[in-house]
Design a protein around this nucleic acid. Structure first.
Length: 428
RNA sequence: GGAGAAAUACCCAAGAGGCCGAAGGGGCUCCCCUGCUAAGGGAGUAGUACGUGUAAGCGUAGCGAGGGUUCAAAUCCCUCUUUCUCCGCCA
């Protein structure tokens, strides 16, 4: 949610910035509605002040034996008027809120306008691996090694599900453990959140109402707001940890990470390019989140990007970092860098981490604040998140980039301690 | 899942239609006294949101949340949430 005051003060500039995201803003109806809202509030509060004043005098009048029936009659009429105006003010307030909640976050000024085609690669690590044999794709490799069982995943749960088996499960777990150990080294707090969340979390993270149909809903109440959903990313949980609280500034920047599976419908997105585990309904991810003061958020963003990139570097994978154009950033974010790993069989780079700064957009939606020691007043925090990392894209990339002519796979050195020193995965 | 009890400010807690935005304690802040400390005395101590104002301020809301009754609600009624106790269920 963006700040209405910013629109009032700088309508043209914000309209222009949002246009870079492909969003056409017309703020005039909103501003008019807000003026009406404020007028209604002023009016009703004047009446309430009058009611309070008269009510306070009634006990004294009664004690003095004076008649109060006439006053009661007038007050009843006043009460009706107040109720009417209260309802009007509430309605206007909700309208303003809904419109405001539907406006995307304002992109940072240095982002290029436009969509994907305007993303710019800002850093590349390593080189495309070359093979002196015909390399296989990860689905074939994993199936032959027996480390991923696609058919039985489908048998149990339908398309988009798979099982990790044996060394596959160990490799997956080693990746997660490696990420966790790196984050702990950097002083991040480890969180294991619930996997079922309430509607408010989705709204607070800026994912709802837009993506309400992209998640798996539990319970059967017709009203979505009373149901829970399976979290699509740990961000949805972490970003809401301090909602409706005022944090101590000394706790900021707060650095968190969580491991959770991510549950997503991914409706209609299955393509040849996304075979195997590149896009599934359930995948594992370690997610980093920072809650910061506005002054800290720029540095926090750099830190998260560097952290995600350093994990990839330590795994020895070829990848690049891409700065997203305004239109490719999600509605919630004012800035996003993607880390994309090379998948040889597809000949493309696939996202393994998306690092974003939401500014105060999420904090405004879920009311997360801190007390500014300078002013003594509460102010909205900034929230940032980044995958660190998602295994479902790394696993295929790792398997493909590290394959040998005999179909075996070299385990990166950093993962070996987490696999009991094992260096290679080969078929039995 | 069923049955009971509870929810008041930083914490504990009183309050049972108007004199209650809230007694009393604890804590915290400041001051006094005591050559340190302990003890003692005094004063202060909703945060917040919204509206209005250049501002000091003023107004409105606010006793778990949302509704209702009433001229007037922390107080009465309804719904919900959470916590505690008991019972049931538990692949």
């Amino acid at each position: 949610m963006i700040d209405l005051k910013r629109i009032q003060e700088n309508k043209e500039k914000i309209t222009e910035l949002l246009a870079r995201k492909g969003y056409t803003a017309d703020f005039d109806p909103l501003l008019k509605l807000d003026a009406e809202r404020r007028a209604a509030i002023s009016e009703v509060e004047t009446l309430k002040a009058k009611r309070n004043k008269v009510s306070a005098e009634i006990p004294a009048l009664k004690k003095a034996g004076q008649p109060v029936d006439e006053i009661f009659k007038q007050m009843r009429a006043l009460g009706d008027e107040i109720a009417m105006l209260d309802a009007k003010a509430k309605e206007l307030d909700e309208k303003v809120f809904d419109i405001l909640a539907g406006i995307p976050n304002i992109p940072d000024e240095d982002l290029l306008p436009g969509e994907k085609e305007n993303n710019t690669v800002i850093k590349t690590f390593g080189e495309k691996p070359t093979f002196d044999f015909e390399p296989q794709n990860h689905v074939d490799l994993c199936t032959k090694l027996g480390i991923i069982d696609y058919p039985r995943g489908t048998k149990l749960s339908g398309g988009g599900f798979w099982l990790y088996r044996g060394d596959g499960a160990r490799l997956e777990w080693a990746l997660l453990n490696f990420f966790i150990s790196e984050h702990l080294k950097d002083g991040y707090e480890f969180i294991l959140p619930p996997h079922q969340l309430g509607y408010n979390c989705g709204f607070g993270a800026g994912q709802f109402p837009k993506f309400t149909d992209e998640v798996y809903w539990l319970d059967c109440d017709e009203d979505r707001k009373k149901n829970r959903f399976m979290l699509p990313t740990a961000e949805t949980a972490l970003v809401n940890l301090y909602s409706n609280e005022i944090m101590d500034e000394t706790k900021l920047p707060m650095k968190l990470f969580a491991y959770t599976p991510c549950y997503r419908k991914e409706a209609g997105s299955y393509r040849a390019e996304e075979r195997g585990m590149v896009r599934g309904h359930q995948f594992n991810k370690v997610e980093m989140v920072q809650i910061t003061t506005p002054a800290q958020s720029k540095a926090a963003f750099e830190e998260l990007v560097n952290k995600a990139a350093s994990l990839m570097e330590k795994l020895g994978l070829h990848f690049h970092v891409s700065k997203l154009a305004a239109g490719d950033c999600s509605a919630t974010m004012c800035r996003t860098y993607d880390i994309e790993v090379w998948i040889p069989s597809m000949g493309i780079y696939k996202e393994v981490s998306s690092v974003s700064n939401a500014g105060d957009y999420q904090a405004r939606r879920n009311n997360t604040r801190y007390r500014d020691t300078q002013t003594g007043k509460p102010a909205f925090v900034h929230t940032l998140n980044g995958s660190g990392l998602a295994t479902s894209r790394i696993f295929p990339a790792l398997v493909e980039q590290n394959q040998n002519a005999d179909g075996s796979i070299n385990i990166p050195e950093v993962l070996q301690p987490f696999m009991g020193g094992q260096k290679v995965i080969k078929s039995l």
